[in-house]
Amino acid sequence: MPSRSQTQPDPLEDFVVRQIVLDGSRKRVYVAGSGPAVIVMAEMPGISPQVARFSRWVRDAGFTVYLPSLFGRDGAIPDLDESKAVFQRACVSAEFRAFAGKGSSPVTQWLRALARLAHGECGGPGIGAIGMCFTGNFALTMMLEPAMLAPVLSQPSLPLDDPAGIEMAPEELSAVRQRLERDDLSVLAYRFEGDRFCQAQRFAAYAQALGDRFVARVLPDSAAKRDELPPFFEHLVAGPHSVVTAHLIDEAGQPTIAARDEILAFFARRLAG
């Protein structure tokens, strides 16, 4: 993949832009590649150059990437004020449930429909998905869709007000656990050790709910990129957080690159025909 600047807006010109209507709701989805489908769900504050870079890595590994626009300006590097506004709008949006006691975000219904569509278009045994930060838990909820075979949770951060919370209704979580056992599937999850938004209590709650089907990876804070961070991550996040995007160090031998490679291998193993 040609090197692209991570400090300039990304035009996303190598993706096909589609307007996809599912369950009565229209969303813009960026699609690229060939092979089994993988849905990449962006972190706050939207489809950044770093999220686009990760999506291209997935594409170049032999998959069709579906990158839905869920919030923010696509390809942009918003300043601090715009980043705050995107975050605040999402927190009060009817599509997302950012706080404890409210169950799964309604947008996951649309994402499950996207999973069915992507599987129908791309074929193969099923699809994979990765959520990050605000969308981090969505890939787990999407396991209620039979086409989903390879869920990855990167620094799942909801609910924001309960470090040990899991953004799912108990009956949904139980159904996912039963499916993981029945179909011999697993969930990959990543966080930095000192992440303030995805703390150890959350991974402990996942492990209690899902047993050994939950495969956790905790990276040392020293593995996080520290320079040339977008304003949202430098000033609002203010610490190690985004394992495969903003805080990834794109150098051989780095723990974040090892995490990226493990995710790509997980998709390949689960989605191979």
Rank of each mutant, 00 (worst) to 15 (best):
M1F: 08
S3N: 11
S5E: 14
S5L: 11
Q6G: 15
Q6T: 10
Q8S: 13
F15Q: 01
R18T: 06
Q19H: 13
V21H: 06
V21K: 06
V21A: 13
L22S: 09
D23C: 11
R26G: 10
R26W: 00
V31R: 02
A32C: 00
G35F: 04
G35Q: 03
I39R: 04
G46H: 01
P49G: 10
Q50G: 05
A52R: 02
A52T: 05
F54I: 12
D60Q: 03
A61C: 04
T64Y: 02
V65E: 03
V65M: 03
P78H: 04
D79I: 04
L80E: 12
L80C: 07
D81N: 11
A85T: 09
A90I: 13
A90P: 04
A90K: 03
A90L: 15
A94W: 01
F96R: 01
A100T: 14
S104K: 10
V107M: 12
W110K: 14
W110D: 15
R112Q: 15
A113C: 08
L114E: 07
R116Y: 05
L117G: 00
L117D: 09
A118H: 01
G123E: 08
P125S: 12
P125I: 11
I127D: 02
I127V: 15
I130H: 06
G131R: 02
M132N: 12
F134R: 03
G136P: 09
M143I: 07
M143R: 04
P146V: 09
M148S: 07
L153Y: 06
P159Q: 05
P159M: 05
P159W: 01
L160F: 13
L160W: 13
P163L: 05
M168S: 14
M168I: 06
L173T: 12
D183V: 12
V187I: 15
Y190L: 10
R196E: 11
Q199G: 11
A200Y: 01
A205Q: 06
A207G: 13
A209Y: 03
L210A: 10
G211A: 10
G211K: 09
D221T: 11
L229K: 00
H235N: 09
L236W: 04
P240E: 08
P240F: 03
H241A: 09
H241C: 04
V243L: 06
T245Q: 00
A258E: 11
D261G: 00
F266S: 06
